[in-house]
Computed example of a mutant assay.
Amino acid sequence: MSLKWLDWAKRIQSLSQSGLTFSKDAFDLERFEELRKISVEIMEEHTGAEMQKIKELFANEKGYQTPKMDVRGAVFQRGKILMVCENSDNKWSLPGGFCDIGLSPGENIAKEIQEESGYIVVPTKVLALLDMNKHPHPPQPFHYYKLFIQCEIVGGAAKTGIETKAVEFFPENGLPELSLNRNIDSQLSLLFEFERNPTKETVFD
Score class of each variant (00 low, 15 high):
Arg36Gly: 02
Arg36Met: 04
Lys37Met: 07
Lys37Glu: 09
Lys37Thr: 02
Lys37Asp: 09
Lys37Tyr: 03
Ile38Met: 01
Ile38Ala: 01
Ile38His: 01
Ser39Tyr: 00
Ser39Trp: 00
Val40Arg: 00
Val40Ile: 07
Glu41Lys: 03
Glu41Ser: 08
Glu41Met: 03
Glu41His: 02
Glu41Ala: 07
Glu41Ile: 01
Glu41Phe: 00
Ile42Trp: 01
Ile42Thr: 00
Ile42Asn: 00
Ile42Lys: 00
Met43Pro: 02
Met43His: 03
Met43Asp: 03
Met43Cys: 05
Glu44Trp: 06
His46Ala: 09
Thr47Phe: 01
Gly48Pro: 12
Gly48Glu: 13
Ala49Arg: 14
Glu50Leu: 12
Glu50Gln: 11
Glu50Val: 02
Met51Ser: 15
Met51Trp: 10
Gln52Tyr: 03
Gln52His: 05
Gln52Ser: 08
Lys53Ala: 15
Lys53Met: 13
Lys53Ser: 14
Ile54Gly: 05
Lys55Val: 09
Lys55Leu: 10
Glu56Pro: 05
Leu57Pro: 08
Leu57Val: 12
Phe58His: 07
Phe58Ile: 03
Phe58Met: 07
Phe58Lys: 00
Phe58Pro: 02
Ala59Gln: 13
Asn60Val: 11
Asn60Tyr: 14
Asn60Phe: 14
Asn60Thr: 13
Glu61Pro: 04
Glu61Asn: 09
Lys62Pro: 03
Lys62Asp: 09
Tyr64His: 11
Tyr64Met: 11
Gln65Leu: 04
Thr66Ser: 03
Lys68Arg: 05
Lys68Asn: 05
Lys68Ala: 06
Lys68Asp: 04
Lys68Tyr: 05
Met69Trp: 04
Met69Phe: 06
Asp70Phe: 14
Asp70Glu: 13
Val71Trp: 09
Val71Asp: 10
Val71Glu: 12
Arg72Ile: 03
Arg72Glu: 08
Arg72Met: 08
Gly73Pro: 12
Gly73Ile: 10
Gly73Lys: 08
Gly73Met: 10
Val75Trp: 09
Val75Ala: 06
Val75Gln: 06
Phe76Leu: 09
Phe76Trp: 06
Gln77Ser: 14
Gln77Arg: 15
Arg78Ser: 15
Arg78Asn: 15
Arg78Gln: 15
